[in-house]
Nucleic acid binder design. Structure first.
Lengths: 348, 348
DNA sequence: CTGAAAGCGCTAACAA
DNA sequence: TTGTTAGCGCTTTCAG
């Protein structure tokens, strides 16, 4: 069916070893011989079988990437960064959407181990689930035993090289941004439970409140699932709870988009009636109305670094590279109105 | 290092053949034997080497996907659809960003051929470039010779199974939508040259004008590169050219976002001063201000269908599955003002 | 139901 | 500089 190396050898009147040498260019071969081989390769449209090669070299030139979903801009940006350096290094990427399902995550890692990937990069965010952590640790060990490795994007309770944004710091700063212009009753639309991202951003929010001598109020913390719909629903729930607040800090920009829609639907204007901030600075955030004040997370850079950790020789230490986040001021925040700021509630 | 099949066999006191049989569950094995093997597998953390398997079976359980860039929502949605059915079928996806570079595209296909992928799905859009077409045809042949196949998303002058949206029809309808409310001078922000998508949408635009007895005016057709920046730049260029127009049809939603920004910057309001329509209906389009009237392309469905074509047995015919597009009316279109509509120009 | 053995296509000693 | 050959880890006849 498909030409193999001995077909090429026969056609070029050389041995398979010689063909292998010109293909890999890792051994001296006489110029005329090389040409004959190259011609045979061309004539036959020969492409070396990567599996046979991988079987011997025990590496595949392939890196596995686990993410939530490519259509989530946050992950898409990370993948873009990963792609960039994969491309430079001549590596292929195997992408797996786990949809935040821990068991699926483990199943994928096993498949990737079977593929003898050079590394697997986990981006989906730690799931605080003991069973999962144990399984993950086991997979990390298995990977290492294969001469591969696990690289983490984000905070995981696992010993492995990692790169993670300063979520808590960013959340702290963006919350203070709200506090500094007089907001006191700031609602937080948190991410799904058990994710390090959720926890870290929540912690930053609480820290900022505390730095202003404020107690976090449970009824002002609502949970979403990092989707537009989740943000929309949570915001409506918040409004309908009749809790008082003058600002909302959404744990990611996508939920902020849902909030914007919900608020508009209820006749509330941002930032006139309610101030709103997000997190991530996904590309669209600048184009929202109003342009969203948020915290920039260097997603592509996280991807790039992760891929570097995945490929670098010798293997990196099991330490986390913390990347700074940055407050991006746009137009979705306004000073709280009037002197009775603390009492201000959304109009109904 | 890593356990292999004979380690498992030894530990379970059986032959490698038996291990293989329980692993693949394609042959009768006595229950107690099977259990011993399964236990050994568990104890050793054994994962079968997919390369060794691929070497024999000549299939890899892997499908290659070529796209422009994951961080482009259009492609991200297609990939999401592809992922869905890949997952159901237990297939792994190898993703390659070609960034619309034809030579990179060919290089990737070669790598994927080496990986013995079960199929490669091309989504990046046809590049009208003879050299490329010849090379692509050659790769398609090579793929077929391997028992693999090429599947196309979009219009290509290549004989292969394909699934493509009705771009021309959608462009026709959305342009008519503008014409019907009195717009006569409609600018078109076309995509990059040599892409079938660009050509088809342009054709639909021209067809709609013709159906109203209008001649397309060259100065109203500007080219962008399907990015926000491209849309922004093109729109500014259009305004500065002092050409007269009351509406803009952007060849994709992302460029429409750039147009929105450019228009706002010049103090032009949509749809009061200028009506705007896009194409694709990417998820964010409903959240723009104003919500964008556009043409919905079933991106995820394209991906799903493409993957089905990639996997189905027996191999599909070399025919294109045309998927309908649908006009989505939102709020970025208004009737042209006054009676002198044809003469209306954007305020300066 | 289980085992022995022949490769799949390639690389990497080892010879020549 | 080139050729010969022994596997890499697995599946799959073919025997038993």
């Amino acid at each position: 069916m498909t030409a193999n190396i001995s077909d090429v050898a026969r056609r070029a009147h050389v041995s398979v070893a010689t063909v292998s040498r010109v293909l890999n260019d890792n051994y001296p071969v006489a110029a005329p011989t090389r040409e004959r081989v190259e011609e045979a390769v061309r004539d036959l449209g020969y492409v070396a079988n990567a599996h046979a090669r991988a079987l011997i070299t025990a590496t595949s030139g392939t890196v596995g990437v686990l993410l939530h979903d490519v259509s989530d801009p946050y992950f898409a940006e990370i993948v873009r960064g990963i792609q960039e350096v994969a491309d430079e290094a001549g590596r292929l990427l195997v992408l797996c959407s786990s949809l935040r399902d821990p068991s699926r995550e483990i199943a994928y890692i096993k498949m990737l181990r079977g593929q003898r990937v050079d590394a697997v990069i986990l981006t989906s965010g730690y799931i605080e689930d003991d069973e999962f952590v144990v399984a993950l640790q086991e997979q990390a060990r298995g990977l290492r035993a294969q001469g591969s490795r696990l690289v983490l994007c984000g905070g995981y309770p696992i010993r492995a090289p990692a790169v993670a944004p300063d979520n808590a710091g960013g959340a702290f700063r963006v919350t203070r941004e709200l506090l500094q212009v007089g907001h006191v009753r700031i609602a937080h639309l948190a991410g799904p439970p058990r994710f390090s991202t959720t926890e870290d951003r929540l912690r930053g929010y609480q820290g900022a409140l505390a730095s202003f001598g404020l107690e976090p109020e449970p009824e002002l913390i609502v949970t979403g699932d990092f989707t537009r719909q989740g943000g929309y629903d949570a915001c409506l729930k918040l409004i309908d709870s009749r809790a008082q607040f003058s600002a909302i800090f959404a744990a990611n920009d996508i939920m902020a988009i849902g909030v914007l829609a919900a608020l508009r639907e209820r006749g509330l204007e941002v930032p006139r009636d309610i101030s709103l901030v997000g997190f991530d600075d996904i590309p669209i955030s600048r184009d929202l109305t109003p342009p969203l004040t948020t915290v920039a997370v260097p997603m592509a850079e996280i991807g790039r670094r992760a891929m570097q950790l995945a490929l670098c020789q010798p293997p990196p230490e099991d330490s986390v590279t913390r990347l700074p986040t940055q407050l991006v001021r746009r137009s979705s925040v306004a000073p709280v109105r009037g002197a009775e700021s603390a009492e201000l509630a959304p109009a109904r």
